[in-house]
Design a binder for these strands. Structure first.
Lengths: 234, 234
DNA sequence: TTTAAAACCTGCTATTTATCAGTTTTTCTA
DNA sequence: TAGAAAAACTGATAAATAGCAGGTTTTAAA
């Protein structure tokens, strides 16, 4: 079982508050879940009994749409929360699905345990509140971008987001997504992503080795979408 | 000054927790602000010193976009929070602008006062956390809708949202917005809204007296967008 | 290592959406 | 209530985006 004591996810809200003595008993109730690549561990619409933290791995968070279309609303990596409302929101059901993008280890807390500990450690609740507030702000920025950016701009924005979130090694993004995934995040179709990525390759600002994508000219990409990101915070 | 004691906004998070004795001193630090119609009281990018509650009135919350285009991310009415991150988020600046849609009375709390009281009343912090979690979920639903609905569907969805949020009297929505406002919320242009509303009028499902819009056939509208709202919660 | 499946790619076409230019109606204010 | 300004509206056209069909490359599994 993944122990909070030796965990290195300094961004994890639980870890950050784990020095508070009152949290010890709670930590013992934590469950560890291991997920294989492509495995779905939250299904939209099912009863929400608790909440997950990514301990190690990468996850996509999805809202089901019409037909076989899905909208990726968020990605999560080490230390981040998945299944946000996990039981203590107004709804008793998960409002999203979650799927591991690679072999992933998750920490799980039941809603009851979590609610108890939140109500007894104000600093922890406050951190959770800040987390949601920040996520909300990001989501609202995304609303604006989806409404106002062109498809090409959204794809570029997505590439830069992946670089900022997961980083790159040897000019290759540290995450492998299908063109369909990029489309489901950017709010367009697979073909458009393919076309735009091809164009960016020809322009020499992006490269691709097999499925993996890499950013060659970060500056050129940033500049193309600069007019949409002027007053941005974070 | 608007007193919490006699306030009837039962949905207000402060009001809900106002029976807790520890909150009294805090309530005395509340400020009341009166806004004329069209007046902007939060400006995106300016330092965030505090947070507002709508006491009585209607407000639109906007993110500035390219050129003169703006994206309305949310509407607020009596009892609801505006300026979400108001200082205690990771950013020290407002990430949105807010403008009164009619003469509006606001309650204002400074970030410092609010942070103190939140850290001392866990139930209040917990309520704030739930509020943000719910807002986040709604915002993510909006992301999906913007990405997957057609323009006509988005306009219909917006009309139904206005009816759900502000209600109707004599088959007329209890809120007056310009076609441009509808466009800025739906993520399209003024002309498209005009065309679609005209079509809906001809189809006999919507009516308009001057600027005001009204829903005649709620069922027909709901059914047209039903395939996008199947698994919806709330 | 072969083979099947999945993912990627391309050109063509259809559809949707935005833009532009100008007219009419409504609203606001002097 | 007259006049100006703002908002609503319309049609024509341009641009952006999606969908389809068929081919190629890559990946994963037998």
């Amino acid at each position: 079982m993944a122990s909070c004591f030796q965990c290195e996810n300094s961004n994890c809200l639980i870890k950050k508050n784990s020095l508070d003595g009152r949290i010890d008993a709670f930590l013992n109730k934590k469950h560890t879940v291991r997920c294989k690549k492509s495995q779905q561990f939250i299904m939209e619409g099912t009863p929400a009994h608790g909440l997950f933290f990514a301990y190690k791995g990468k996850v996509k968070v999805v809202k089901t749409g019409v037909d076989d279309r899905e909208q990726i609303v968020r990605f999560a990596k080490d230390g981040e929360i998945i299944g946000h409302r996990g039981g203590f929101g107004s709804s008793k059901y998960y409002s999203i699905s979650a799927q591991a993008l690679e072999d992933t280890t998750l920490c799980y807390f039941s809603q009851d345990d979590l609610k108890d500990i939140l109500l007894s450690i104000p600093n922890l609740t406050f951190d959770f509140m800040l987390f949601y507030a920040d996520e909300l702000s990001e989501s609202e920025t995304r609303v604006r971008k989806l409404a106002q950016m062109s498809v090409r701009e959204r794809v570029i924005d997505t590439l830069l987001y992946m670089d900022a979130k997961f980083g790159s090694s040897n000019q290759l993004l540290n995450i492998t997504l299908s063109r369909k995934d990029y489309a489901d995040y950017s709010g367009t179709t697979e073909e458009q992503v393919i076309r735009i990525v091809s164009a960016l390759k020809k322009e020499g600002v992006v490269k691709a080795t097999g499925r993996k994508l890499g950013i060659i000219n970060h500056k050129a990409l940033s500049e193309e979408i600069a007019k949409h990101t002027f007053s941005q915070v974070g």
